[in-house]
Simulated assay, not measured.
Amino acid sequence: MPWTALLLAGQRPGVDPLAEAFGQQWKSLVPVAGEAMLSRVAKTLLASPSITHVVVVAQRPDHLFVGDCAWLADEPRISSAVSVSGIAVSIAGLAGTKAASWPVLVTTADHPLLTPAMVEAMIAGVGDADVAVGVVSSDVLLTAYPDNRRTWLKFARGAWTGANLFALASERARPALLAWSEVERDRKKALKLIWHFGPWLAVRAITRTITLAGALSKAGRTLGAVVRPIALPFAEAGIDVDKPSDHALAEQILAARA
C-alpha cells in the first residue's frame, strides 16, 4: 500500500540554538556533512519504496525551499503545507485529506541519519495497528554509541527512546492525535505523558511492572485504537540532531557511511 510521508520541518517560537550556532534561521536548513538536514531526509523518504508522496510541513515552507533544498520546489512528489499551532493539530488537519491520504508516516527534518531501510522496517511492522510508534532500545543504541545522551522511557524489560517515526494507518488514528495534542508540551516527560491515561497505568509505569508494549496497548484501548511500538534494530534511528554533540556524531556517522 502506498504511504504519504509528513515531513515536519517547523520549529518552536524563538531562536533555535542549533540553527543560531550554524547561522541559520531555520533548524531544518542546518547542514550535516555538507547538506541541509531537510534535503537529506526528503531524499531518504523519496528513496523508500513504500513512500509515494512527501508533504513538508512548516510555518514558512517557502522559506525552506532554498539553497540545498531548492530542488524540493520542483519535485512532483513533494508538496508543502503550513503548520498551525501544535504538531499534533497540524498532523490531524492533514492526515486523511486529499493533501495527505491514509496511511501516513510522520517523521522530522532533524533526522538526517534516517535511511530507506529504517522507513521500510517501520512500515513493515505496522500490521493491524492504527497507530505505531518507532522506538530504539537502550541496548541497541548504547552498544553502538555509549556516550550518546537520549531521553529514555523506562519500562519492564528495558528502556526506550523515540525514533521520530510514527505510523498512522487510518481514520482510527485520529483519537490518538487529539490525545497527543493535549500532552504535546510534556512529550519528553514520561510520567506526565503516561498519567494522562490514568493513575493505575502511571503507577505500573513508575514501578516498571508493565512493558512499553503493554502500556501503549492499554493507552490505545482508552482511545479505541490499536497502538503498538515498533522496536527498530538500527541504533541511528534513535539519534536526531538537537544539539552540537548530536551534530558532530551525525557527521561522523555519515562520513563512515560514505
Rank of each mutant, 00 (worst) to 15 (best):
residue 4 T to G: 09
residue 5 A to K: 03
residue 7 L to M: 03
residue 7 L to G: 05
residue 9 A to H: 08
residue 10 G to I: 00
residue 10 G to S: 13
residue 11 Q to C: 09
residue 14 G to W: 09
residue 15 V to S: 09
residue 19 A to F: 07
residue 21 A to V: 02
residue 22 F to G: 01
residue 23 G to Y: 04
residue 30 V to C: 12
residue 31 P to F: 04
residue 35 E to C: 13
residue 37 M to S: 08
residue 42 A to W: 02
residue 42 A to M: 01
residue 43 K to L: 05
residue 45 L to E: 01
residue 47 A to P: 03
residue 51 I to A: 05
residue 52 T to P: 01
residue 55 V to H: 07
residue 56 V to Y: 06
residue 59 Q to T: 14
residue 66 V to E: 11
residue 67 G to S: 03
residue 76 P to L: 12
residue 81 A to I: 04
residue 81 A to S: 13
residue 82 V to L: 13
residue 84 V to E: 10
residue 87 I to S: 02
residue 89 V to D: 06
residue 91 I to A: 04
residue 93 G to H: 02
residue 93 G to R: 11
residue 96 G to H: 04
residue 96 G to A: 06
residue 101 S to G: 14
residue 104 V to F: 04
residue 106 V to P: 05
residue 107 T to F: 08
residue 114 L to W: 00
residue 119 V to F: 03
residue 121 A to N: 04
residue 121 A to T: 07
residue 121 A to M: 06
residue 125 G to S: 08
residue 126 V to C: 14
residue 133 V to A: 11
residue 136 V to C: 01
residue 138 S to Y: 00
residue 141 L to D: 01
residue 141 L to Y: 07
residue 141 L to R: 08
residue 142 L to W: 12
residue 148 N to H: 14
residue 149 R to H: 15
residue 151 T to I: 12
residue 153 L to N: 11
residue 157 R to T: 03
residue 159 A to N: 10
residue 159 A to G: 08
residue 165 L to S: 06
residue 166 F to V: 15
residue 167 A to C: 14
residue 170 S to E: 05
residue 171 E to W: 12
residue 175 P to M: 07
residue 177 L to I: 01
residue 178 L to F: 15
residue 181 S to E: 07
residue 182 E to W: 09
residue 185 R to F: 00
residue 196 H to V: 02
residue 196 H to Q: 10
residue 198 G to T: 10
residue 198 G to A: 08
residue 203 V to P: 00
residue 206 I to C: 03
residue 208 R to Q: 15
residue 211 T to G: 09
residue 213 A to V: 00
residue 216 L to N: 02
residue 219 A to S: 14
residue 222 T to F: 13
residue 223 L to E: 08
residue 225 A to C: 09
residue 227 V to A: 10
residue 231 A to T: 11
residue 232 L to D: 03
residue 238 G to F: 02
residue 241 V to G: 14
residue 242 D to E: 08
residue 243 K to R: 15
residue 244 P to M: 09
residue 249 L to P: 07
residue 254 L to R: 11
residue 254 L to E: 04
residue 256 A to D: 11
residue 256 A to E: 10
residue 257 R to V: 12
residue 258 A to K: 15
